[in-house]
Structure formats: C-alpha cells, structure tokens
Design a binder for these strands. Sequence first.
RNA 1: AGUCUCGUAGCUCAGCUGGUUAGAGCACUACACUGAUAAUGUAGGGGUCGGCGGUUCAAGUCCGCCCGAGACUACCA
Length: 1113
Amino acid sequence: MAKYRETKSLNLPDIDSEILAFWEDNKVFEKSVSERSEDNGFVFYEGPPSANGKPGIHHVMARTVKDLFCRFHTMQGQRVERKGGWDTHGLPIELSVEKELGITKEDIGDKITVEEYNQACRTTVMRFKDQWDDITRKMGYWVDLDNPYITFENNYIETVWWLLRKLYDKDLLYKGYTVQPYSPAAGTGLSSHELNLPGTYKDVKDLSVTAQFKLVRDEKSEFLYEGHNNDVYFLAWTTTPWTLPSNCAVALGANIDYVLIDTFNPYTHEAVSVILAKDLVPKYFKQEAAELSLEDYKAGDKLIPYSVVQMHKGSLLEGIHYEQLMPYVQPEEGDAFRAILGDFVSTEDGTGIVHTASVFGSDDYRVCQANNVPSILVKRGKIWEPLVDKQGRFVEEMGEFGGFYVREEFYDDEIRQKEEFESTDLKIAVKLKKENKAFKVEKYVHSYPHCWRTDKPVLYYPLDSWFIRASAMRERMAELNKSINWKPSHTGTGRFQVWLENLLDWNLSRSRFWGIPLPIWRTEDGSEAKCIGSIEQLEQEIEKANRELGLDQEVPSDLHKPYIDRVTLVSESGKQMIREADLIDVWFDSGSMPYAQWHYPFENEEVFRNNFPADFIAEGVDQTRGWFYTLHAIATMVFDSVAFKNVVSNGLVLDKNGQKMSKRLGNAIDPFDTINNYGADATRWYMMSNANPWDNLKFDLDGIDEVKRKFFGTLYNSYSFFALYANIDGFEYKEEKIPLSDRSEIDRWIISLLNSLTKDVEADYKDYEPTRAARKIQNFVESQLSNWYVRLNRRRFWKSDYSSDKIAAYQTLYDCLLVVSKLMAPIAPFFADWLYRNLNDVSAKENHISVHLAHFPDAEHEYIDKDLEQRMDYAQRISSLVLSLRKKEKIRVRQPLTKILLPILDDKFEDQVKAVEDLILHEVNVKEIEYIKDASGIIKKKIKPNFKTLGKRLGKHMKEASSKIAGFSQEDIAAVEKTGAYTIELSGESFDLALVDFEISAEEIPGWQVAQDGDVTVALDIHMTEELKAEGMARELINRIQGIRRDMDLEVTDKIMITADRHEVIIKAVQDYQDYIKTEVLAEEITLSEDFTNSHTVELPGEIQLNINVSKA
RNA sequence: AGUCUCGUAGCUCAGCUGGUUAGAGCACUACACUGAUAAUGUAGGGGUCGGCGGUUCAAGUCCGCCCGAGACUACCA
C-alpha cells in the first residue's frame, strides 16, 4: 500500500535540493514548455543581466517576479519560452578590465592594443557566470540558459545593424552636435554614469559675472526707451564667464515679470537702464537706495539710486535684439543675439535672464536649436569648432585670450601659484568692467562636476555624435504606451508617459572600445554615407571596394573593433569611405533583444512573429528609462508596435532599516546564504507577500523566518496531520468522490472557501498582483484550513471506523492541500511540488509528475456558497465570544456548560446559526443554544442611523438626526421595526425614513453578561450542576490520561488498563462517564481502588493530587 | 532643483468609490490547550492615521501648503 510521505520536521533547504534534482532528472522545465501548444503562447522577454558582476539579493527579487508569472501562465496551459540572455558590452566591463590590467583608457593602443583589450573584455564578461547559473538554479528561476542570446555575438550584432539600417532608411539617424560632459584633461567625453560616481561633484569658488547686454534700438524695443534717456541692457548672470564670448542669445521666462530700472553702472558710474526679473531686484539693489534721487548721484557713492520705470512679462520681450557682448567671432549666418523664451528659466538666482551659449550647455543648446539661434563657431578646414578647443583653451580667434585655458585648474600648479597669475575668468571680468558691460562681479561657491579620473573640472562641450531622431516619434511612442499595462500604473502613466511626451533625441554614440560598432561609413568630407544593415551587404560593399580601390579585404570574423575599423568602403562617386569611429550605446543592444535574440530577420522569421511583442516583462524601476524605454523606442520606430503588453517594475531591496545595501556599509545580504539557510521558497514567499514588488522591500531575515514558521510550518503541519491518519486508515483516494451534498457543513464550507480563494488568486495572478495572491493563500492556510477546519475536525480523522464521513474528511482535506499546492506553485515552486507529489504519488489522481505540469485549478462556481461562508463566519465569531466570556468567568473550556443565549433579530440569522449550531456547541463545550426571539421582549436594543443612506439625504441635518436617533427608547425602536417607517423632524423639516436607514442591534440581555462583536451578541449561562461537574471531571481525567499515554510513548492505537484512586471528586465522573472515558483513551477497563501501585500522579482542578496507574493492555 | 511614490500600533503591512469604537501579523504580557505538540487557542496593553489649513453633515480616505523618507531625471545661468 502506498503511503503518504511523513518526515520528522520541515526542512525547506532539503526540499529544495530534492525537488531540484527531480526537476533536472525528469527535465520538468523542458516538459513544462514542450507539453504546451505552440499556438497558445505567452511571450516573456528576459532582460539580460551582466555576468560581469555578482548576483545580489535584489536579483532574487526581480527574478521571482519574472518566474512566478511565467509559471502561472504555464499552469494556465500556455507555452512560455524563456530564452535567457547576457548583456556583455558597456562601460562597467571596460572599467573592470582596466582595473584588472592596471591600465587606463589612455593606455589603449599604447601599452595594450585594442585587439588585446577587447579580447580581455570578451573573456572577463562571463566571469561570474557560474555564480549566476548557481543562483538561477537554486532560487528556482526557470529560464533557458542553454541557448541564451549574447550581445557580443556576430548574429546579435547583425540584427542590431539591421535595426540601425531601418532607422537610417527612415531618416531617423543623423549626425549632429550635442553638448556633453567632457573632460579636457582626459580628452574624453563622459557618460552620465561616470558623472554620477561618488566624489565627482565638488564645491568650487568661481567668479560670477552679471553682464550687461546692450539692446538694439528698433521698433521692437522702442517702448523700452520711453521715460528715460539711457541705453537699455539685459542683465544676465553667469558663473562661467569664459562662455560669454560664445553667447548667442539670452533666455527669458514667458510668465516672469521683468522690470526696467534706471540706475548707474557701479564700475563706470554711467547712467544705464537695465532689465531683470522683478523678484530679483532686491539681490541687486538696496531697498533704501530706491528713496534716493537719481539726479543727486555722484560717481563713487556707496548707495546707487535706482528707479523702476516699466514692468513687462517675458513674453513681451521676446525677439528683442542686443549687441554681441564680446564680438571676437560672429556666427556664420542666422539670427543670433536676441531674447528667446525658455521653460527652464527661473527666478531662483541670477537675474531671471539666462546667458545662453549654445555650445557649452545642454539646455542652452536645446533652446537655441528650438529657436533657430546659430552657434558661435570657428572653421577649421571643413569642420566647425567652438571657441574652446579640446584641450580646454581659447582658440586663436579669441585675440588677447587666445591660448588661455578657460579654467584655471587646467594650468599646471606651478603657474597657478605664481602671484601674478590671473584666471581667464578674471581677465574677462576686468575687460567687461572697463567696457561698461559688467554690472556685478563677485565670487560664487557652487557644486560643479569633476572628472573622476583626472579630478579636473568637466566642461560641457559639443561633440559630434550620432543621434536617433526619437523626438520625431514622440507622439507615437506616447500613444502606444497608453496600451501598455504598467505595474504599478503610475510608473507608466506618470513617469514614463511624461518622459515620452518630452522626449529628446537619443544620443547613440559612445567613444569607447568594447561595444557594437556603428555600421556607418562616410567619405572624409561627410558628403556621402552608407549604413550597413547585414553581413551580406557588408560583403558586397567590401567586394565593390576591393574592386574599385584595388584592395584585398574580407568581412572580419569578429565585427568588433579594431577589425571592423580596418574595412574601407567606396562611395557611389568612387570615394573612399571609412567607418565612423563610434560605438553605440549599450542600451540599444538590450532594446534590440526581441529581434536580435532570434537573429531576425536573417533567421527564425516565424519564431519571431510568434514572439513579438512580449506579453510580459519585468525589471527594476531603474529600467524605466533604460531597458523599458529602449525596447519601446525601437519597437515603435521600426515596427510601429509596442514591445511588451504588461510590465512589472519592481522596487529596491533595502536592508531592514531601510538603508541601501552596499558592500561598503556591510549590510548587503548574500543571496546564496539566504537561500541555503531558509530555502528558496521562504525567501521568495517573503519577498512577494511582505510588500508589493514595486514598493521598496525592507529586507529582514527575521521576516523570512516568520514566513517559514507561520505559513510553511502551518501548511506542513496540516499535511503531516493528514498523512499521519491517512496512512493509518490506508486512505488512497480510491473511493468515489463523495458528493458535496452528502458531506458535512464544514466540509462544504472549506470547499466553498477554497473555490473562492481559487477564483481570487487566479484573478490576482492575471492582474499581476502577486502580493494579494500570496496574502490570500496565506490567510486561507493559516486561519481557515489549519486553525478552523483541521482543528475542529481532528476527531473525524482519528475516529476508529473508516466511515463515509471519515472518507469525506480525507477527501476534503486532500483536495484543499492539493489545490493549495497549485495556487502557491508559482511563488513557492519547490514546496508546492513536494506537497503535490506527496499527495498525487499516493492517489495517482492526476497524470502529472509535477505540479508545474498540472493545470491551474478552475474555481468551481457552484461550490461557492456565500451563505455558508457567512454562517461559518458567525460560528467563528460566536465561538470566539463564548470563549471570551468563559475567560472572563474563569471557567475552563473542559467544563461543559448548559446553554448559550443568542438574541435573534431576524429569521435569516437564526437559520444561519442553526446550521452551524453543532460546531459552535462542540467548539465551546456547551449543551445548547437558546435563541431569544425578539418577541420575548427581553432583548435590549441599540439603534444607530445608517450614515451611508441618510448622509446623502439629510446633509447638514445629519448631526441632529444622529443625536435624536441615539435618544430613541426601546418603544421607539420597536415601532420602527414594526412599521418599517419613521418620520423625523429636523429643524422644522420632516423626513420619512425607512428601515434601511437604521442599524439595529442587540445591546444586552438584562441579567446576563454579554459579549459583542459587530452585529452578533452572545450571553452565556454559567449555572453549574453536579452532572456538569462530573462531565467536566471526566474530561479532566481523559486529558490527564492522554498525557500519561504520551509520557509512556504509547502508539496512538495501543489499548490500556487504568487504575485510579477512589477519590470522591472523581467517583461520579467515572461512574457516569465510564464508557465515554474508555472510548476516548482507548482503555479496556477503569478500576477505582484504594490500594494499588501508582505509575503516575496527576493534578486535578482544586489542587487535588490523584494517583493513577496506566498499563498497556 | 523638478517629477513621482510613500509617511497608519515598537516592527512589517491592510484599510474598497469619504460614513462614525481604525484592522491583521510579528513582538510583548497573562491565561488556556496538549492524540497537528520545536505546534495551537483566547484575552490584554499599545495609534493626536507625519504636521497645519481647507472642502463636507461626515476626512486615515478628497484638496492645498509644510516636514520627513525614497526613487528617477537634471545639473542650471
């Protein structure tokens, strides 16, 4: 006979390894995919991790989310392929290689060849792959790592090239200037990542200049000359005076109020009229100076008088021209030196007018582009360059400033320390002062980014980059996003949507070594270009170039640098073309995975069609502008489609105090230790049940322990209990299913709850709400199944005969456990499978070797009986109330009592309680329930207004009504109940109220102590009789004898013989309840005697010592 | 700096479209149970629902401001 497995105790890590081996031996994962039909797919995309870093506990979190929905949909009968992937490019890899080799970027090409460097990257990329494989396996994350996509492989790169070519053909790829952080000292652009390294932002003391930009007097500006005879100037503030020669516009806020002020220049003392934001006037002028007369001013006066002449909105000043401040270099063509409007302008500091140098600020650049303001550039051969060269020096066109470093930090320390040293900023300030162009010059401390490698300040500098014209697809992206289901929704509707609506072009270029090369070749003058979209095309182009240029090249076997750089192509007009030196942003790599993972369109056309777009993806919120965006952008631009339909963005995993985990703080949790100690399931369950995945999780190992004890412990106990008795009785579920109608109330109740649970949990999983699902399952197991169903039904399982009632109990509990195993399987795959297999191996009712191959249960709606659920709720609450009354009266539960008094206010309540009466009586050890009908007149009632119905109708009269109703007498209440109507007078108005407008409950039964819980009120009859006392004593005896049995280590089925003292307190109990006691403790005989050798002494209530002897029969 | 999220018992979290003694689990205390026992039950203490103001007959729930935490974005004249 098959036996349900019984184990000594719950050991989750052991279950992990057992189930893991089982899955591997039986290829359960593979089967879970292959057994599902290809026409019914659920598409999941794996966001590739980089195996260059070690897996952390947050990866367990992210992957639990991914895994559970894939498992759920598998159980729903869908085919869920999970192709794994590895992200292999990018700066972190370069940095780790450099660290390892002890080199810097400058050494590349010098101490080490690009070839060697890239080889080192390639080998280091998978450094922690073993650890990743290990955590993947141990945490139970099912993903296909046998055929992963790898972003550095040629096939992958080819698809990326194909995508780029598509963009190129749609005119979405262009080369242009962008202003980026640039380190002249290191000679390289910096990524935002590099700029966010710790310590890069430092406080520096810079010279700030408020410059006077002299207006051009024409019809546009004429109104500003009314009421005074001065020249008019815009005042604009800068902390980087060296950018002033490159000024090409000033920016104003459309809704900011600007004033025109008559005053004097503090350095030249000339009379001037200046424009600045009204809010910032106090920063430049002293209040008391406003009183002074302008006429009385003498050069050198401390207080400079001023007078506000006009006030205008910024929008009115738009388009007004001014004279170039430092006319060294003029723009080639276009409309420069005018006031434009910018949304970034504030009145926080400065003048509310922003000096704009298009080439040295990204906001500046953007606003100038938008307003068609030309930049100040010089021509070098055929190339335009800014007034500062790549070393950080002014160009020679800058006259007396030519050759000067724009930031003093770029000079050698020796030079800087000399006394006569003057910074370039200072020299500029002095010049402006002399020319009546500076209104204020002062030192200013602010935080400024520095290059993390050289420690020198960064410049914002225009660099030639390739861009994706994402802004052109802005609206379409925003529109498509609306069809995506985001979890949580605010990430999608808020953060992501807003970001899309303000989308800028995507800077694709990276001047690095290890990444996908941009497949664009251009002629030297940039007039002709070719974008390569496939290896085949490259081959043809190479052949053509070989032919026309007389070369002997081949397609490189590796598409990376430096090999690809050696390829020269030929243009249509026969000119030589070389590859644009840049690599592409690694984010483009990962955003290409829906296509590149299948090497589409070069292979797997059909597979791709079936796997695009994804039904579901999940990553951390930090990917919103990362992977989520690049997937969305590429899909929109190339396929006019979303890339994913549902997305879960999970939050951070913090330590238990809410601190970020870091190696430095030593508070990082090791995922391997955690899983080894607590098991994967407890860890996964804890993560899913404790907080929504999108909320940050304060990770506390004690929490996992609690989950283990409370949830898994309880479930394990329930199973063990089942297994213990089912094995004794040989229950193998071979009998016909006992129809529900033949089962007891409590069986039907738990089955009803089970089906309600199934329905809810399925909906939660479908809705990507794992936390709700987990909490519901947990509540069912802990509060309903274990604490109520199993506890109340224990007797049915150990009663000796194998009756149909007993079989019903087994079937019921079995079904509950089996369904729970399925419901929990997505989150806790190991324990669920262990439980499922333990059950199914014996019953063989289902034809699956694993729960993960089984079908997610369908809720049987006809088994759901809400009335039944409600009456069991009554039973639980009434029992609880009775127990609390016993407690108050200090009467132990073993002491039987005669009756419970239960006020009945409506017939349905009575019927409901009657149906569960036996359960209650048994649970609280009372003989009967006396239903006290309303008519008896002994129930005292309480009445309250129904705020919900009345509030809307009565409005402000509600308070008055409330106090009036509270003052109702018992007669008033009775009248309301009888007639079902009441007319109430409130401040002279009268309202007709109906029965639904009141809430009536039983408050007390005079003469009895009552307990109340919401609408249920209970009283307990505690009168004692000799009969009851004897019965109570019988139970005490049974209890003590059971204890002795346990002490003697008897088997549950062993029979015994009992001898006890002929003590007066037990005589009646033993006489009257002899049979009862015998049955309960499996005694063949009970003898009372004065003379025997006792084996035990027990204590009975009343501090009575009783000698007793128990022996095996 | 901006945007978003969050702030409920010592801790982790519920609290539906506003409706009148604010809930659960853990922890703590006491008691009970003891054929699920390294389990279980019952009871109890503990909260100005971050602060202030507003809307409303009624606000933990809606609105505004402030404080605090976090994330993202930006780095600014």
